[in-house]
Design a protein around this nucleic acid. Sequence first.
DNA 1: CGGGATCCGAGACGATACTG
DNA 2: CAGTATCGTCTCGGATCCCG
Lengths: 132, 132
Amino acid sequence: MTEPNAAEDERRAAAFAFDVFARECPSRSVLEHVTGRWGALVLAGLRKGPARFNSLRRRVDGVSEKMLAQTLQSLERDGFVHREVLAVLPPKVNYSLTPMGESTADHLLAFIDHLESQMPAVLEARRRQEQV
Amino acid sequence: MTEPNAAEDERRAAAFAFDVFARECPSRSVLEHVTGRWGALVLAGLRKGPARFNSLRRRVDGVSEKMLAQTLQSLERDGFVHREVLAVLPPKVNYSLTPMGESTADHLLAFIDHLESQMPAVLEARRRQEQV
DNA sequence: CGGGATCCGAGACGATACTG
DNA sequence: CAGTATCGTCTCGGATCCCG
């Protein structure tokens, strides 16, 4: 009966090895993809529902074509976003969140909400610093 | 009885104005400071308790002096981090989280925990993509 | 419409040296 | 010890053009 436990142990050991505080850890790159300048906004934007490229681009105000494409590729590689190509003319590509993407986006939205609620305090703190 | 509501409305309007989806919104810079490459790790690192400069630098593996100083300055300006200078020799500077910093770091740690738990799935997704 | 390819400037980042 | 200053590298990110 050691087989199931061995798998358990391996998974736990792996989870420990993913500590973001360690240099050269793969979880850092994921953290950067997800929380990066556009990654967070794209995830949050897709949480409102699936969207096509230019539709999503309008949701995330200010993102260039290049960065949106690049961000979507990262998120797709990491398994947060699903990309569905419809072979029609003109081409249609649908982007949606995977289940993992949804749960991640939920965390992110909660975090963003919290940040936005603190914005007045942040702006006040900035004003105080300026006067020094 | 319109006075209290006016204040309410103003606060709600302000919160709306901080929507991260809007370009040129101050909340975007805060989001970037907090979730940026080092910002997130520094906040998470300080959540373990106050620390001095080099002590903190050891907690956040791989950060250079320059980036740590820069990150701490951003976070201090935004009111997440408190900087306390002790006028002794050799100089001692203590960094700690403000209450706002603590609540933000808590959200962040929850988010990081969630991400780390998903790492096996992420790595598997990456492997699948490579084979294409 | 949904991108890929390319160019280019600005800023991020790290290593090192120096200071109070 | 806690930074600042300087420098070089390298990536980010926008603009533009192009293709299926």
